[in-house]
């Protein structure tokens, strides 16, 4: 699905990613963990195509296309979705209008006819039931005045509506209490299939109790320094990120490859 090779990237001349290698196949759930400043969110932003970041080296292939050549909206059209750590507010723009625009823009990109009101409503009701989404939220301005939990649930609802191939969840658990985490994670799990893949970016292990990863990667100083199964996450939780440093004083071991 996505093949990241030796990816180097930075912002305003500051190098943050120092050679990421990662290969995700359909049906897999990957987790990227790491301490603050290790480059987790940068990786998510670079993959989504945020302009501020500059890719200096390496390549990313997404469903056979060169991802880095595509504009952010084209990446979305190809099926890449980013659930934001801090979803933005757009006053006066209703959530439902925003989602309808997004769904139809993605359809347009794929050469499909836009959904008419009836078809859209049907899809929406279906996904709302799936997500346990409150209808009143959708008529409110996008994310304006939403609680932390509502914002994140809205992200996952959009994911359900857009049905991406690869969903990147950037710190989706940050700022949520345990109940909210459970709700959001349940939503994600319902969307999981053998056709799509999920990349969970998180600082803490707790989200991974609910969204169980097939692979866990530890990001440190802009490189993946250790990869393993879900047990690695538990080990990290127990020992803290320092153990990575202690284990690899040089942090030079070859990056994880399949």
């Amino acid at each position: 699905m996505i093949k990241i090779k030796n990816l180097h990237a930075g912002i305003e001349g500051k190098q943050i990613l120092n050679g990421i290698d990662l290969d995700i196949r359909p049906g897999e759930v990957h987790a990227i963990m790491g301490p603050n400043g290790s480059g987790k969110s940068t990786l998510a932003s670079v993959l989504a195509g945020r302009e501020d970041y500059e890719v200096t080296k390496g390549s990313v292939e997404f469903l056979g296309r060169d991802l880095l050549e595509l504009k952010p909206e084209e990446r979305a059209g190809e099926g890449l979705f980013l659930a934001f750590q801090y979803p933005v507010e757009i006053p006066g723009l209703s959530t439902i209008n925003f989602i309808k625009t997004a769904v139809n823009e993605v359809r347009k990109y794929k050469g499909q006819e836009p959904l008419d009101a009836v078809a859209f409503l049907k899809l929406m009701n279906e996904k709302m039931a799936l997500m346990n989404m409150d209808k009143t939220l959708l008529s409110r301005s996008l994310n304006e005045g939403f609680s932390g939990g509502e914002k994140k649930r809205n992200e996952i609802f959009q994911m359900a509506m857009l049905q991406p191939k690869l969903a990147i969840l950037d710190e989706t658990d940050s700022g949520l209490d345990i109940d909210a985490i459970r709700i959001v994670a349940n939503g994600v799990n319902k969307l999981k299939s053998s056709d799509n893949a999920i990349l969970v970016v998180t600082h803490y292990q707790r989200l991974l109790d609910y969204i169980v990863p097939d692979f866990v990667h530890v990001l440190y100083n802009g490189r993946i320094v250790k990869s393993g199964s879900k047990e690695l996450a538990l080990e990290l939780e127990e020992k803290g990120y320092d153990f990575i440093k202690n284990e690899n004083p040089t942090i030079n071991e070859p990056a994880w490859t399949r």
Partner: peptide, 9 residues
Amino acid sequence: FYCNQRGID
């Protein structure tokens, strides 16, 4: 960027 990421130019 948020809109772009949802496929909106």
